[in-house]
C-alpha cells in the first residue's frame, strides 16, 4: 500500500506529463494544418508534371536511345531504397511502420539475391536500421525541412540520387514513406522513382493525352533529359511533404491518446488517494474514540 505522500507525488508527476502531452498535441495540430496546406499547394505542380511526362514518356519509351532514367539500365541487381522517416520520435507508430515495411522489402530483395543500398532521410529511420543494415546504409540526410520543407531541400536529395544513378551505382530506386490520408490514418507507401513508371492513365483522360502530337522546343530528347531529373525532385518533394503531414498527424493522435490516458490515470490515482486519506482519518477517529471509552 503506497503512502499518502507517494500517491501525491505520483499524481503531480502524471499531471505534469499530461500538460506536456497536451501541449505537444496542440503544437502538432497547428503544424499539421500548415503541413497539409503545403502538401495541397504542391499538388497541382506534381499533377501537371505527371501529365506532361506521361505523354512524353509514352511516346519515347518504345524507341531505342530512350534516356536511361526512363528505360532503366536493363538490370535489376542493385536496389536503392530511400527510407523517409521523421527526425523525432513520440509520434506513435509513424517511424516504426515505415521501418517495418522497409525491412520486409529489404529482406524480400535479399532473398532474391539482390544487393540493397539504403539512403535514410530522417534520423529515426537511420537509428532503427543501423543495427541490422549498417553496411548497406550509404548516406543519411538529417534535419531536412527545418523550419519548413522547401523544394530546394528535396532537390538536394534528388540530386544525390541522380548523381548516383548516373554513376551506375544502382539500377532501381524506390522510396518508402507514409502517405497522408487523415490525421488518424497514414498509409505506408512504396513508390518506384527510377526507372520512371508512368502513372496509370485514367479512363477518358487517355484519349486527350496520348493522341495529341506535340511540337517540341528544343528537341524532344533534350526536354525529356531535363524533365526526368526534375520529376525525381518533384516526387521526392511530394513524398517528403506527405511524410511531414503524416508525422504531425500521427503525433497529434498519439499525444491525444496519451493525454487521455494520463487523465484516466489521474482519476484512478485520485480515488486511491482519497480512499487512503479517508482510511487514515477513520483510523485516527477509532483510536480517539476507543481511547475516550477506555477512560
Amino acid at each position: 500500500m503506497p503512502t499518502l505522500k507517494d500517491l501525491k507525488t505520483r499524481i503531480t508527476s502524471v499531471k505534469s506529463t499530461r500538460k506536456i502531452t497536451l501541449a505537444m498535441k496542440m503544437v502538432a495540430a497547428a503544424k499539421l494544418r500548415r503541413a497539409q496546406e503545403q502538401a495541397e499547394a504542391a499538388r497541382p505542380y506534381a499533377e501537371r508534371m505527371d501529365r506532361m511526362l506521361g505523354s512524353l514518356a509514352a511516346a519515347a519509351a518504345g524507341r531505342p536511345g530512350a534516356p536511361a532514367m526512363l528505360a532503366g539500365t536493363g538490370k535489376d541487381d542493385v536496389h536503392l531504397l530511400i527510407v523517409a522517416t521523421a527526425d523525432r520520435g513520440l509520434c506513435g507508430g509513424f517511424n516504426t511502420s515505415i521501418v517495418r515495411a522497409s525491412r520486409a522489402h529489404i529482406r524480400a530483395l535479399r532473398d532474391q539475391g539482390k544487393t540493397v543500398k539504403i539512403l535514410c532521410v530522417g534520423k529515426k529511420g537511420n537509428d532503427q536500421l543501423r543495427r541490422e543494415y549498417r553496411n548497406s546504409i550509404i548516406d543519411v540526410v538529417n534535419d531536412i525541412g527545418k523550419p519548413s520543407l522547401t523544394f530546394a531541400d528535396a532537390g538536394d536529395v534528388a540530386d544525390k540520387i541522380t548523381r548516383m544513378y548516373d554513376a551506375g551505382e544502382f539500377d532501381i530506386c524506390t522510396i518508402v514513406y507514409n502517405r497522408f490520408q487523415s490525421a488518424m490514418t497514414q498509409v505506408v507507401t512504396q513508390q518506384q522513382l527510377i526507372p520512371f513508371a508512368p502513372p496509370e492513365a485514367k479512363e477518358g483522360e487517355e484519349a486527350a493525352g496520348a493522341d495529341r502530337l506535340y511540337e517540341y522546343e528544343p528537341e524532344e530528347s533534350e526536354i525529356l533529359d531535363a524533365l526526368l531529373p526534375r520529376n525525381i525532385s518533384v516526387q521526392v518533394y511530394r513524398a517528403l511533404l506527405e511524410n511531414a503531414a503524416s508525422e504531425q498527424g500521427a503525433r497529434m493522435t498519439a499525444m491525444d491518446s496519451a493525454t487521455r490516458n494520463a487523465g484516466d490515470m489521474i482519476d484512478s490515482l485520485s480515488i486511491q488517494y482519497n480512499r487512503a486519506r479517508q482510511a487514515a482519518i477513520t483510523k485516527e477517529l477509532i483510536e480517539i474514540i476507543s481511547g475516550a471509552e477506555a477512560l
Binding site: 506532361m52 512524353l56 495529341r212 502530337l213 506535340y214 511540337e215 517540341y216 522546343e217 528544343p218 524532344e220 533534350e222 526536354i223 531535363a226
Partner: peptide, 19 residues
Amino acid sequence: PGAEGDFGVLAGHAATVSS
C-alpha cells in the same frame, strides 16, 4: 520565354512542349 525564343500563346495555339 521559351528556350529558343519568346513565343506568344493565343487560344488555338498548336500543341507544344517547350523548356
